[in-house]
Design a protein around this nucleic acid. Structure first.
Lengths: 345, 345
DNA sequence: CTGTTAGCGCGTTCAC
DNA sequence: GTGAACGCGCTAACAG
């Protein structure tokens, strides 16, 4: 008997249960269902019971259990977003506008970093799918075969952002990195540069831009892009080192340097200034991205503008209209880009 | 009859149900529970049935339903993180290290932006709590009374980061902004500066630093901080404008300028260079944060180092050991800061 | 080692 | 306008 009493006490010790709709209903003198209705569709409940319910809700401090709701309704109001890095403003800015639009429509965003490895991404995708998101946002168009398969099997909308492809998993919104870089090469040539170099980060899209730039520049001028440096990631330090590396390659004065990102370009600008070089006459520098600071460096940075806010909101809108499934959503959405000529090149 | 058949067809049209543990079990010739065990505790299942189960899992493409799991076990393996802005690297870096540690321990992070308004934060908190996170991470120590109440009632661990206070909701990990700014003032004085100015963003912590700097500087030198400019947010553009504004206030050459962030300081550096001014003799500039770029500006930036990665991981570890509830967790964790003297001041 | 029985807290029918 | 009954897919006791 003493034993039984002990057990009872231990059970009691479990901190008091969270308040449920049942509890709220009891206090308001109605059933659980009515509480549920009062929250999801207040018009379907009489004014007076509604009042009793809302009173009971803030008397008890009731917080709806979205987990239970999701299980019952088969709708989580959650969307997953997978980006390589959240500390890279280029990705976080797009996600921020994406999240903001989704939130306005009642969705929360479960955000994770995948790094740049598709295998890691695949593992993340599985974890995310287990939370039964109503949609998934992915960065880039390269994913493992198994990832594609899981996504397809999950039967929910998927947007891939930052790139365009003829064969998206479902929807893609982005722009052609090849075209953007090719146009940068055309910009260089039409501004009279006969020599070019590249400094780029090691991620796949940066490499693709670099190649496209080099190819188009050679095509246009007949002269190969002689100087190239590759660095791990985009940082001021790597930009400065990049210019020094190029100089180590005996880069000719007056060369046009295409950087894979504005940050790298900014680093080169700083290094050039520190060395007493004049930009663009000694070195011409072009960035990529048109980040907020690009217009305010000295000299201001010529770059390729990509509308990150639009990227995010377009992705959100695509998903949203996919949920309504009234009108069919275009599978490939090209938001384009824009060459911005300022003073660094 | 025809009517009934139609209805049946419509029902059938609902896309084929997702595969459940029940389905997997059926295929493997075991019950649903055994499947559950096979996944959560493989040792408790015989080798041969385990094999049959794993075979069935990848034959069917089964993806566990974490929603149902969370409802049944009363554990979501989800933690909420609320930050003012995810595009501000200062916050996203801390969250990235936080997430990384949490993920290693099986938790996913539900991240949302709150902006800088406590009322907005309160609304977000409610939404997040409805997902029944196992813990919550908050930025700063100022929250509405209702927010505190909800958090307390939720009875889950809460970490507040970026600041320390004697009365955290639960746990806080950060540093004293007052002390950091006061020490920046001491740095200025001990380096011989007799005049000071401030340029700061409008958020609460930045203002607190500004005030603490001004107070300590006046205390030490007997001369009031004459020049001050405030701007909406930290950006290169606002840093450049800040220097010009200070000049508009007839700031004496050789003044020490304390900026509320490295980005603002970097902007000032650029503006100074553009004007042909020499730093630090014409203007001395100090930043705050020691972001990655601070060592690579020209001249390199003196600043106050805050270890953002440690901030995030400490917060994660505090929560984690709170989950184990073996040893009690210290309610206030001060990770400190460090004055970094480089060449801009 | 495996299966049975109960819920978890809500939404979704249906009755009334 | 309101309630009873059922089920979402899983974990947590138990029993065998």
């Amino acid at each position: 008997m003493g034993c039984i009493m002990d057990t009872t006490n231990l059970t009691r010790k479990k901190t008091s249960r969270r308040v449920t709709m049942e509890d709220v209903g009891k206090m308001a003198g109605v059933s659980q269902v009515t509480v549920s209705r009062a929250l999801s569709d207040p018009d379907k409940v009489s004014a007076k019971t509604l009042k009793k319910i809302t009173d009971a809700i803030d008397a008890t401090g009731f917080v709806p259990n979205a987990i239970a709701g999701a299980l019952a309704s088969q709708k989580s109001n959650l969307v997953s977003a997978l980006v390589p890095s959240i500390t890279n403003i280029v990705y976080s800015a797009a996600v921020a506008s994406f999240s903001s639009v989704m939130r306005e429509h009642g969705y929360q965003v479960l955000l994770s970093e995948t790094g740049f490895d598709p295998a890691d991404e695949e593992a993340m995708i599985l974890t995310h799918l287990s939370r039964r998101p109503d949609a998934v946002l992915l960065t880039g168009i390269h994913h493992t075969a198994k990832a594609r398969k899981m996504l397809l099997a999950s039967d929910i909308p998927v947007v891939e952002i930052w790139d365009v492809t003829e064969s998206p998993i479902d929807i893609c919104v982005g722009f052609s990195h090849d075209k953007a870089a090719a146009m940068a090469a055309e910009f260089a040539v039409s501004n009279g540069y006969g020599m070019a170099a590249t400094v780029s980060a090691s991620d796949e899209r940066a490499q693709r831009r670099r190649n496209a730039f080099e190819m188009r520049f050679a095509e246009l001028t007949g002269t190969k892009v002689e100087y190239a440096v590759q660095c791990e990631h985009a940082s001021l330090a790597n930009g400065r080192a990049g210019l020094r590396a190029l100089q180590g390659q005996q880069m000719t004065p007056g060369t046009f340097v295409f950087c894979s990102s504005d940050v790298l370009a900014h680093g080169m600008l700083i290094e050039a200034n520190a060395q007493g070089l004049t930009v663009p006459s000694d070195v011409a520098i072009m960035g990529f991205g048109d980040q907020e600071f690009a217009a305010h460096t000295e000299p201001s940075l010529s770059t390729v503008r990509v509308d990150r806010a639009k990227l995010g909101s377009s992705a959100a809108m695509a998903l949203l209209s996919r949920f309504e499934n009234a009108v069919p959503v275009a599978p490939v959405n090209d938001i384009g880009f824009e060459i911005v000529k300022r003073t660094s090149a």
